[in-house]
Simulated assay, not measured.
Amino acid sequence: MNNDGKITTHLHNGVATISFYHPKSNSLTKKLLKELTAAVDSFAKQKNAKVIVLRSEGNKTFCAGASFDELLEINDFKTGKDFFMGFARLINAMRKCPKFIIARIQGKCAGGGVGIAAAADYTLASSEASVRLSELALGIGPFVVGPAVERKIGSTNFITMSIDAEWHDAFWAKNAGLFTKVFATIDEVDDAVSKLASKIAGCNPEAIEQLKKVFWHGTESWDKLLEERAEISGKLVLSDFTKKYIQQFKTNK
């Protein structure tokens, strides 16, 4: 496996699959975020792609969020904003995509990974898929992913996740509205994803496109909003608090 991570795509019988991998718990680097966004945009334009499945590799962590290695390397506001704009662009690409996006969540999901789960139109998870918004502990805050998460789980649950910054199990996530369904095993998740994707692939793409617009009504300002949020994170990531936290985390790990 590539130590820098990778994105793989596959299209079969109308079902487009986008898979990401990084050796450090599927954390997201600037490069991976850019490639993920490009993959979503590409399938959005392909007529023979009827539905998109977004997943990560491995049987453990779905996504650990932002790459701590890259966060440590940020030394100026422009670089900080640009890094967090990677999450903003991905969420906006998922929002604007005229195809339904199914997220397959096999394990723990933190920070930006929660944002991906929230930005998907239908999220299927295993019982091992606990979730956490760890950004406040990091000295930042879930600013960029916040609108997508709050839209899915409501303000009270979003406030809860943001303030306590602790792990919540998959059933909490389902009850909150982040996950659509939770299954006991990975095999059951994969079976459900396959059946749902095949079913959607046989539906009228025009109806799907119009439904997608209905589902995301009221988010038309997100291009500007998420950029503003990226600017907040881009400033906070420069703080001594954040630098010390990440260094201590890496040392103790």
Rank of each mutant, 00 (worst) to 15 (best):
M1Y: 01
T9M: 11
H12P: 09
A16Y: 00
H22A: 06
H22T: 01
S25R: 07
N26V: 14
N26Q: 14
L33D: 12
A38Q: 08
Q46G: 00
K47S: 14
N48W: 05
K50R: 10
V51G: 01
R55L: 14
S56G: 01
E57K: 04
A64D: 07
G65W: 00
S67R: 01
D69Q: 07
L72T: 07
E73R: 02
N75I: 09
D82C: 05
M85H: 04
A88H: 00
R89I: 02
L90G: 04
M94F: 03
C97K: 03
K99A: 12
I102M: 04
K108N: 11
G111F: 00
G113E: 08
V114N: 05
A117W: 05
Y122W: 05
T123F: 00
A125Y: 02
E128T: 08
L136C: 13
L138S: 10
G141W: 07
V145N: 15
V149N: 04
R151A: 15
R151N: 15
F158K: 02
I159L: 15
I159K: 07
T160F: 05
I163E: 04
W167Q: 06
A170T: 04
F171G: 02
T180L: 05
K195H: 11
K195E: 13
P205I: 12
A207C: 15
Q210E: 15
V214D: 05
W216V: 14
G218E: 12
E220R: 07
S221H: 09
S221T: 14
S221R: 06
L225D: 09
L225E: 05
L225C: 08
L226F: 01
S233Y: 03
Q248T: 14
F249A: 10
T251I: 15
